[in-house]
Write a protein that binds this DNA or RNA. Structure first.
Length: 874
RNA sequence: GGGCGCUUAGCUCAGUUGGUUCAGAGCACUUGGUUUACACCCAAGGGGUCGGGGGUUCGAAUCCCUCAGCGCCCACCA
């Protein structure tokens, strides 16, 4: 036999990677077929593949390959995301290592470095996706900063502005002092920490009395412009109209009443710093307070910080507490555990900061998006995320889209240098000059008299256009591609970006095209290690995909991942599952070896049980294809794989092949070999989405299928199956199991041939199968009374084993009795149920019918069992 | 604080509209097996009062209440 005994994925997978690349198998263009479209959730351009990506993209590849096999024009668009803050942070770090500080560079110089970085590291991840077999249309690869994508983003901004969905406002935003940019709420993470709660003395004006104010941030007293108290607080009445002196600063500030103050917290007094807390800012608005910003962009203190000017906020905190203490202005300090806001990207403490930003008005824009999901136009798998989605949309807030970064889509707004309150929104400065004339009647502006907004847009502002912009549907809404491919079919992503991305794509899709962006959303779980911990660099528990692939093959890893990935559940990844996948590859390989080695020999007598096995496997295949399709329709991908795994391993190898396998040295008929190859071909087609490499290779090696392209072949059709054939066949397998069990219990070897007498009708081909799989003869014989010295019951037909002496005594009568008791109990319950008027009158007819059938079955079973026990006792 | 979800065999999970041939799968485990595709294998087997308690019902893993444990998302208080 020329084929290797052990399947070696490495060589074969590489061979197919090259071939797929060369022959452009995955290319898609609009045609007369129905489209099936998936857009990759674009990974960070400079990122590398982790387990989450693997899972995600394997699922996408399975869906897309299945669709391709099912006759759709399958199009999977790959691409990468510029990931503005994440990438910029990496570049800043890189520059730091080189001794260059970002602020020493001009915008253009910085961008040059960023592009160098991107060109150097970009695309690695796409190559890794190829390694795991992703069948993307690589000619369509997009990058969110490509020229057309860039323009799409800016066009969207302009459209939204023109239609009144954008505004510029001063608000308290989350400020990342390290990256020196604002963050969206979604980019802020909270961590519990124990810090100190300081009680500071605020003297009443022209009095020696003081009140205590509790704060965790004593360094912000420089920005205090009031102290607030809840108007329902009893102390409030005595204090109205009085003033306090801010310690150290000696600023005189009013006491104001505000319902948002929690009287239970601290002393019930809240120092109000409108520039550095959202809540304080609102109190400030309500009470007309001054706003004093005390920080520089890096969160060091500015001129208002007096002698602490230029020092960092945290060192000021330490120093100012000492000073307050020395001056008797600190009453006490207590431990206090609360949540600290941290930047997702730089991990530094977020500083609330007042600043002017661009916002998207979300309420009206997002209104239709909720219905699209609630009424089922868009389906979520698993369903539970509909509620999460609903909850967010119902409480949606305006979206801050400005980011004080260089790397990204620059905001297309031009300001008059002289007076920045005057601005126009457009693509270029030459257009801006015209618009200034129209809008403000300012004529003959020089281009150096206007300046473009320094900020870029939030990364997600480009992401929410992804399903439209990859087909150029923002700039050209009527082009043939967008009309053909949009709406896309499925989106596969993690639930962690349901708000960042999924919801916003639905919103933008509805806004731009009055249509959904995708029909189904499949949420994958988080990949954890087998102890349930998140995978992280620090723990070192995240396996390297390249190493996994080398060890188990891409097919093996794909199968391993899918074995543990029910939709929406986190999956506990374990190497051994990949090993199971690898073993499965080997099993498939060896099944092929066996079949391939069949010699044709027409002189063999036709065996009826072979025909029966073929019939059975055909019907069984029809049945399993139906259930696999059903699993696919419900996005139960791992269920589909498990069914296939069992179909191939148990049904095809352990049963079918074991039956039709010729005895040593003998051959098979042409017809049998052809049928078997047809089954193998169908199974490989079914397996292809999960294991594209090995299935391609084997199909390629089956001689008669040389020109058969598995990628585009037809998914086996199935509408119905003959359940009688399946039942009859299964019964013989049931007998086989019982006989094997019997042999094992009686310490007989597989080779020992027994004569087994049976009383009821069995078909010849059923007998043939038992004979082939157990090496035992089944002989039909009416057994009367004492003749049946050795009887052993299985199933509803009952049969008798005659092995002269030893077996007889070891037959387990207790087992039979146990089974009898169970069935008697069952019968009791059924009879009780059926004689219960409440049941008969209340339960649906079909249920009653079913119960009656059960009763009949159980009665005949009891009869057989009783007879069997009687025979044993004789 | 607001919202969502989970608890079924040693592990990871299936169990659609309540109906005892649904208590199931894979892995792990135990036992036996190797000249004849595969030990990356074959065969057989043992495991669970479906988290606790209560209720609805003729009937509950499935519906309701409650207790206990776990997890996620959102908001964030000085």
């Amino acid at each position: 036999m020329g084929i290797a005994k052990i399947y070696d994925p490495l060589i074969i997978e590489n061979k197919w990677l090259v071939k797929w690349e060369k022959e452009d198998f995955f290319k898609s263009e609009p045609n007369e077929k129905n489209p099936y479209t998936i857009l990759i959730p674009p990974p960070n351009v400079t990122g590398i593949l982790h387990m989450g990506h693997m899972l995600n993209n394997t699922i996408q590849d399975i869906l897309i390959r299945k669709a391709r096999l099912s006759g759709y024009n399958a199009c999977w668009v790959p691409g990468t995301d510029h990931a503005s803050i994440a990438t910029e942070a990496k570049v800043v770090n890189k520059l730091k290592e080189m001794g260059i500080k970002k602020h020493e560079l001009t915008r253009d110089e910085f961008l040059e470095h960023a592009w160098d970085w991107t060109n150097k590291h970009g695309g690695i991840i796409l190559n890794q996706l190829k390694q795991i077999g992703c069948s993307c249309d690589w000619s369509r690869t997009k990058f969110t900063l490509d020229k057309d994508m860039y323009e799409s983003v800016q066009n969207m901004f302009i459209k939204l502005y023109d239609e009144g969905y954008l505004y510029r406002d001063k608000k308290i935003v989350n400020w990342d002092p390290e990256a020196k940019t604002t963050l969206s709420n979604e980019e802020v993470i909270y961590k519990e920490k124990t810090t100190k709660l300081f009680y500071l003395k605020y003297k009443l004006e022209s009095s020696e009395e003081f009140i205590l104010v509790a704060t965790t941030r004593p360094e912000t007293i420089f920005g205090d412009t009031a102290v607030a108290i809840n108007p329902n607080d009893k102390r409030y009445k005595n204090l109205v109209g009085k003033k306090l002196i801010v310690p150290l600063v000696n600023r005189v500030v009013p006491i104001v009443g505000d319902k948002s103050v929690d009287s239970e917290f601290g002393t019930g007094y809240l120092k109000v710093t409108p520039a550095h807390s959202e809540k304080d800012f609102e109190i400030g608005l309500r009470n007309n307070l001054d706003i004093i910003d005390i920080f520089n962009d890096d969160a060091s203190l500015n001129d208002y910080g007096m002698h602490y000017k230029s020092l960092d906020r945290f060192s000021v905190r330490k120093k100012i507490i000492n000073e307050l203490d020395e001056k008797g202005l600190l009453d006490r300090a207590e431990d206090y555990t609360h949540n600290i806001a941290l930047s997702e990207r730089t991990s530094c403490v977020v500083e609330p900061k007042l600043s002017t930003q661009w916002f998207v008005r979300m309420k009206k824009l997002s209104k239709p998006a909720l219905d699209l999901v609630l009424n089922g136009d868009i389906q979520f798998y698993p369903k539970k995320y509909v509620k999460t989605y609903k909850n967010w949309l119902e409480n949606i807030r305006d979206w801050n889209i400005s980011r004080q970064l260089y790397w990204g889509h620059r905001i297309p707004v031009f300001y008059l240098k002289e007076d920045k309150s005057k601005y126009v929104v457009c693509l270029s400065s030459s257009e801006a000059v015209k618009l200034f004339e129209e809008k403000y009647n300012i004529k003959n502006l020089n281009s150096d008299e206007i300046v473009q907004d320094e900020d870029v847009l939030d990364t997600w502002f480009s992401s929410w256009l992804w399903p439209i912009s990859v087909f150029d549907g923002v700039r050209n809404p009527d082009n043939s591609e967008i009309k053909y491919y949009y709406p896309t079919s499925d989106l596969v992503t993690g639930p962690d970006i349901i708000f960042f991305w999924v919801a916003r794509m639905i919103i933008s899709g509805n806004y731009l095209r009055q249509d959904i962006p995708f029909r189904n959303v499949y949420f994958t779980g988080l990949v954890r290690d087998k102890k349930g911990r998140k995978m992280s660099k620090q723990l070192g528990n995240s396996p390297d995909p390249d190493i996994l692939i080398k060890k188990y093959g891409a097919d093996g890893v794909r199968v391993g991942l899918l074995f543990c990935a029910p939709a929406g559940n986190d999956l506990l990844f374990d190497d051994t599952l990949c090993n199971q996948g690898k073993n499965f590859s080997n099993k498939i390989w060896n099944a092929f070896r066996l079949i391939d080695g069949f010699k044709i020999d027409e002189s063999q007598k036709r065996k009826s049980h072979n025909e029966f096995a073929i019939k059975w496997f055909n019907e069984n295949l029809n049945m399993k294809v139906l259930s696999i399709n059903e699993s696919f329709n419900n996005f139960k991908i791992s269920e589909a794989l498990m069914n296939l795994y069992k179909l191939f391993w148990d049904d095809f190898c352990s049963i079918y092949l074991e039956i039709i396998k010729p005895e040593f040295g003998k051959g098979v008929s042409q017809k049998l070999k052809r049928s078997t190859l047809t089954f193998l071909e169908k199974l490989l087609t079914l397996l292809h989405p999960f294991m594209p490499f090995i299935t391609s290779e084997i199909i390629d090696q089956i001689v008669s299928y040389k020109n058969f392209n598995i990628i585009k072949s037809n998914w086996p059709e199935s509408i119905k199956f003959d359940s009688e054939i399946i039942e009859n066949f299964n019964y013989s397998i049931e007998i086989v199991s019982k006989i094997r069990h019997f042999k094992k219990q009686n310490m007989l070897s597989f080779k020992d041939d027994l004569k087994i007498y049976f009383e009821n009708d069995l078909m010849d081909n059923q007998i043939g199968i038992v004979k082939k799989l157990t090496n035992c003869d089944l002989i039909k014989k009416q057994i009367k009374g004492k003749d049946s010295e050795t009887s052993f019951i299985v199933g509803k037909y009952g049969y008798v084993v005659d092995q002269k002496n030893k077996i007889l005594n070891e037959i387990d009568v207790d087992k039979l009795k146990e089974e009898l008791n169970y069935n008697l109990g069952f019968k009791n319950i059924l009879e009780k149920k059926l004689s219960n008027e409440n049941f008969v009158s209340n339960a649906p007819k079909e249920v009653i019918q079913k119960e009656r059938k059960k009763l009949e079955d159980v009665k005949s079973k009891i009869e057989i069992l009783e007879e069997g026990i009687k025979k044993q006792n004789n």
